[in-house]
Design a protein around this nucleic acid. Structure first.
Length: 739
DNA sequence: GGTTTGAAACTTTTT
DNA sequence: GTTTCAAACC
C-alpha cells in the first residue's frame, strides 16, 4: 500500500483495529493524528466504508480543520462526506435539524460567556439576589457544572430540595433556563446537554444518527466531560465502533468540567475494549523528553507509560532566573532575535508559553520595541470587543429578534435618546404580556408611561425591519454594510480621530473580511450560519502557522501544537503552579504539573525555561522562588543559573505592603546566586516559627502553627487559621510571617 | 437622559 | 495596573 509503511507497529495496530471499542493512549508527540487520519484512509480505501458513515470529533475548529486537510491528502476525492467537527458544532448541527423536538426555533442563538453573564445579571435582579453575597459567576459556575454532569434545572431542583441553602440556586437555575428558552438561545453547555437529551428521549433521532455514524473517533479524549462522554456513548451504542485517542497526562481542563475518569475507566465502560499504547515520541530531543518524563513522574494515579525516543539527546533544557519580569522578557526576546540572526531558529520556529494571559503584555512591549513580528493567541477575544459585539448584536437581532439581550445591547447604539428608564418600561411590558422585547417595541403605543420615547423607538424598529429585508434579499455582506451605513457606526468612530477609534475601525474591517470569507467558503451561506461560526470559534483557531512570527499563548492554548524552539516563561511558584492551586490538595498541583508536562513536550529541539524573582501583579510587587516543577528536573537534563533565597531574608522580604523604594534595599542585596543548586533544602532552624506560634499568611490571615513536617526538599507546615480553617502548605512559598 | 468621575474588583486556565 | 460599575452632576 505504501501509505502505512511509515507507521510503527503500535500505530499500525491503531489503524487496523476498527471494530469495537478502542482506546489509544497516545503520549505527547507519538503521532496520534497520523494514526487517526490513516485509520480513516484505511476504512475508506481498504474496507470500502463510505465517508458518509465516519465521524471524527475534536475540541477546536483548528484541530478539525487540520484533520480534514490531512485526511484529504491521504484519501483525496470523497473525503468531504466525512463528518469532522468539534463537539459543539456537531451538537449545533443536530440541534438545528431537530430543534422543534425540544421547543426551539431552528435559528436559535448561541450565547457566549459574556452573553450568559449579562443574562445572569438580569436573572439575579429579577430573583432579588444580593449580588454582594452571591456573585453572578457563582451561579454560572454552579449551573455549568450541573450541565456538564447532565443535571438539568428540574433534576437539580429535586436533587437539592432538602438543602435550604440551595434554594436560591434552584430558583436562579430555573429562571436562567426559562429566559434562555424565551430568548430562543442556548449557552455552550446547553449545546451538549440538550443534544444528549434529544438523543436520549427521541429514539428515532438517535436511530437516525446511529444509522449514519458507523465509525466514531474522538480526539483529546482526556478532556471530555460527562455530558460529552454520554453523547459519544449514545451515538456509538449500536455498533460500538468507537475509537478514542488521548493522554491522561495531558488532561488540563478539569476546571471546565473535564472528567479524567472517562479515559482512566474506559475499559470499565467498554469491557471488551482494545487498548493500544503509543509510547515512541517523534517530536522532541532526548533531553527534552527526559525532562518531561521526570516532571510527570511525580504524579500518582496515572496510566503507566514511559515515552521514549530515537531522536538525538540534543541540548540540555536551559533555565534562567531573572531579576524581574522586565528582564525576563528582555532575555527571551533578545535570545529569539539572536537565534534568528544566527539562522538557527526563525521567528516562526519560536513560541513563548505562559500560565496566565496577563504575562503577555510585557513580552508584547519588548517585541514592539525590538521590531520582531509576533502573534498573541487568546487574551481579549476578538469577538468580545465592544464594536464587534455591537455589530454582531444588530445581526443577531435581525436573525432572531427573540434574543432580548442583543436587542437591549443595540437599542441605544448609536445614541438614539432611548435611556434605561424607557428600556425598563418596555421590558416590564414585554414580560407582563409574554412578549419578546422587540415585539413590545413594535407596539410602543400600548406601553404605559413611555411618553416621548416612543417616537425615538419607532425609527429603530423600522431600521431592523429594513435590515431584515436586506439580509433576506442580498445576504450577509450586504447586511453588515447596511448596518454600518445606516447607523453611522464607522462615521462616528472616524470623527473621534483617536488611536483607539482607529483600532476599532480596523477590527470592524476585519469582521467584514470574515463575512466575505464566510460567504465565499460556506457551502450554503446564511446569516444564521455566520453567527454560529462566530459563536463557536476558539482563540487558537485564528493561528496561522505559515506566517513567520513568534507565537505567544497560554499553556492551555498550546496543547496539540509543536515548535522547534520553545520558551516556558514565569516558572515561579505561585504563578506556575498557580497560587490558586497551592491549597494542600495535591490533585490541584497534579493538574498544574500536567500543564507543565504539556508545555515541555511542545518543544522539538530547544527548550528554555525562565522565571522572574520579582513581578508586578495587580499593581503590587510579588517575590517568588523557582517553580517546584523546575526543581523536579534532574541536572542530567537541565542546565543554567538558579537563585535560591536564604530563608531568613525571604521571611523578612516585604510581601504585602512593599515600599516601592525597597527594590534595591537590603533583602534583595543579601540574596545569593548559586550555580546548579536545584533542590536546596531549607533547614528547619531557618524557619523563624515553630509549632504553637502565631503566624500571618498573605491570603488566609492569622493563625496558629499546628504541625511542621519534613517533606522532601521542603517543610510542610500545618496552620489552623482563625477564619480560613486548617491548611497545609510548604514553608518555602507560604510566606508565613511570625507575629 | 446622558456624561463624568472615583472607587472597587480583578486574573488561572476556555468550547 | 486595568477595567467595570455606581453615584453625582450636567
Amino acid at each position: 500500500m505504501g501509505i502505512y509503511d511509515s507507521l510503527n507497529l503500535e500505530q499500525k495496530k491503531g489503524v487496523e483495529t476498527v471494530e469495537g471499542p478502542v482506546l489509544i493512549l497516545a503520549g505527547a508527540g507519538s503521532g496520534k493524528t497520523r494514526v487517526l487520519t490513516h485509520r480513516v484512509a484505511h476504512l475508506i480505501h481498504d474496507l470500502g466504508v463510505s465517508p458518509f458513515n465516519i465521524m471524527a470529533i475534536t475540541f477546536t475548529n483548528k484541530a478539525a480543520g487540520e484533520m480534514k486537510e490531512r485526511i484529504d491528502n491521504l484519501v483525496g476525492m470523497g473525503s468531504e462526506g466525512i463528518w469532522v467537527a468539534t463537539f459543539h458544532s456537531s451538537c449545533v448541527r443536530m440541534l438545528r435539524r431537530f430543534a422543534d423536538r425540544i421547543g426551539y426555533d431552528t435559528n436559535f442563538a448561541i450565547y457566549d460567556t459574556d452573553d450568559s453573564k449579562a443574562l445572569m445579571k438580569e436573572v439575579c435582579k429579577y430573583c432579588n439576589v444580593d449580588t454582594k453575597q452571591y456573585k453572578e459567576r457563582t451561579f454560572l459556575n454552579e449551573i455549568s457544572s450541573a450541565k456538564n454532569e447532565l443535571i438539568n434545572e428540574e433534576m437539580y431542583a429535586s436533587q437539592n430540595s432538602a438543602d435550604f441553602r440551595k434554594e436560591i440556586f434552584i430558583r436562579v437555575y430555573r429562571e436562567y433556563q426559562a429566559r434562555l428558552r424565551a430568548n430562543n438561545a442556548m449557552d455552550f453547555d446547553d449545546l451538549i446537554m440538550k443534544t444528549v437529551e434529544l438523543l436520549k428521549y427521541q429514539t428515532d433521532v438517535l436511530k437516525f444518527y446511529q444509522d449514519r455514524f458507523h465509525y466514531i473517533m474522538v480526539d483529546e479524549y482526556q478532556d471530555t466531560n460527562t455530558a460529552q462522554f454520554e453523547l459519544v456513548r449514545l451515538l456509538a451504542s449500536g455498533r460500538q465502533n468507537l475509537c478514542v485517542v488521548g493522554d491522561d497526562d495531558q488532561s488540563i481542563y478539569k476546571f471546565r468540567g473535564a472528567n479524567i475518569y472517562n479515559i482512566l475507566n474506559f475499559e470499565k465502560h467498554f469491557p471488551d475494549a482494545t487498548v493500544i499504547k503509543l509510547e515512541q515520541n517523534y517530536r522532541s530531543t532526548g533531553n527534552i523528553l527526559n525532562a518531561a518524563n521526570s516532571v510527570i513522574a511525580n504524579n500518582v494515579g496515572r496510566k503507566e507509560k514511559k515515552l521514549w525516543t530515537e531522536n538525538d539527546e540534543g541540548d540540555k533544557v536551559h533555565f534562567e532566573m531573572l531579576e524581574s519580569a522586565y528582564e525576563e522578557a528582555d532575555y527571551i526576546v533578545r535570545d529569539i532575535v539572536r537565534q534568528n540572526r544566527n539562522g538557527k531558529y526563525g521567528f516562526g520556529d519560536s513560541a513563548i508559553l505562559y500560565r496566565t494571559n496577563a504575562q503577555s503584555r510585557i513580552l508584547e512591549e519588548k517585541f514592539i520595541f525590538e521590531g520582531v513580528p509576533y502573534k498573541i493567541v487568546g487574551g481579549v477575544n476578538f469577538y468580545a470587543r465592544k464594536e464587534i459585539k455591537d455589530l454582531l448584536s444588530y445581526m443577531k437581532t435581525v436573525n432572531n429578534s427573540r434574543d432580548d439581550l442583543a436587542v437591549q445591547r443595540i437599542i441605544n447604539v448609536p445614541k438614539r435618546g432611548i435611556g434605561q428608564t424607557s428600556i425598563s418600561r418596555a421590558m416590564d411590558f414585554a414580560i407582563n404580556n409574554d412578549l419578546d422585547l422587540f415585539e413590545a417595541l413594535e407596539h410602543t403605543d400600548r406601553i404605559p408611561n413611555l411618553g416621548r420615547a416612543s417616537s425615538k423607538i419607532e425609527p429603530f424598529v423600522e431600521l431592523i425591519h429594513e435590515l431584515r429585508q436586506i439580509s433576506a434579499n442580498e445576504g450577509v455582506l450586504a447586511l453588515i454594510n447596511a448596518i454600518i451605513e445606516k447607523t453611522g457606526y464607522v462615521e462616528e468612530l472616524k470623527a473621534e480621530k483617536t488611536e483607539e477609534a482607529d483600532a476599532r475601525i480596523e477590527n470592524i474591517n476585519e469582521l467584514i473580511s470574515k463575512v466575505v470569507d464566510y460567504e465565499q467558503n460556506a457551502e450554503e451561506p446564511t446569516l444564521n450560519g455566520f453567527l454560529e461560526d462566530v459563536a463557536l470559534v476558539a482563540d487558537i483557531d485564528s493561528l496561522d502557522e505559515s506566517v513567520p512570527q513568534v507565537v505567544m499563548m497560554t499553556l492551555h492554548a498550546a496543547k496539540g501544537l509543536e515548535f522547534p524552539n520553545v520558551y516556558l516563561s514565569g516558572m515561579e511558584d505561585g504563578l506556575f503552579p498557580s497560587f490558586m492551586s497551592i491549597t494542600g490538595d495535591e490533585s490541584e498541583i497534579e493538574e498544574e504539573r500536567r500543564l507543565c508536562y504539556v508545555g515541555i513536550t511542545r518543544a522539538m529541539k530547544r527548550l528554555t525555561m525562565t522565571g522572574a524573582k520579582t513581578r508586578m501583579v495587580r499593581g503590587e510587587t510579588h517575590y517568588s522562588s523557582i517553580s517546584r516543577f523546575v526543581k523536579e528536573i534532574p541536572n542530567d537534563y537541565l542546565e543554567g543559573n538558579t537563585w535560591e533565597p536564604k530563608p531568613r531574608n525571604y521571611m523578612d522580604a516585604p510581601v504585602d505592603a512593599a515600599p516601592k523604594k525597597s527594590m534595591k534595599g537590603a533583602p534583595l542585596a543579601a540574596q545569593t546566586y548559586k550555580k546548579q543548586s536545584f533542590g536546596t533544602k531549607i533547614a528547619k532552624n531557618d524557619l523563624d516559627y515553630t509549632v504553637g506560634d502565631r503566624v500571618r499568611h498573605m491570603r488566609f490571615g492569622e493563625g496558629e502553627v499546628v504541625d511542621i513536617n519534613e517533606g522532601g526538599r521542603d517543610y510542610e507546615v500545618t496552620v489552623e487559621f482563625d477564619t480560613a480553617g486548617r491548611k497545609k502548605m510548604f514553608a518555602s512559598f507560604a510566606k508565613l510571617q511570625k507575629l
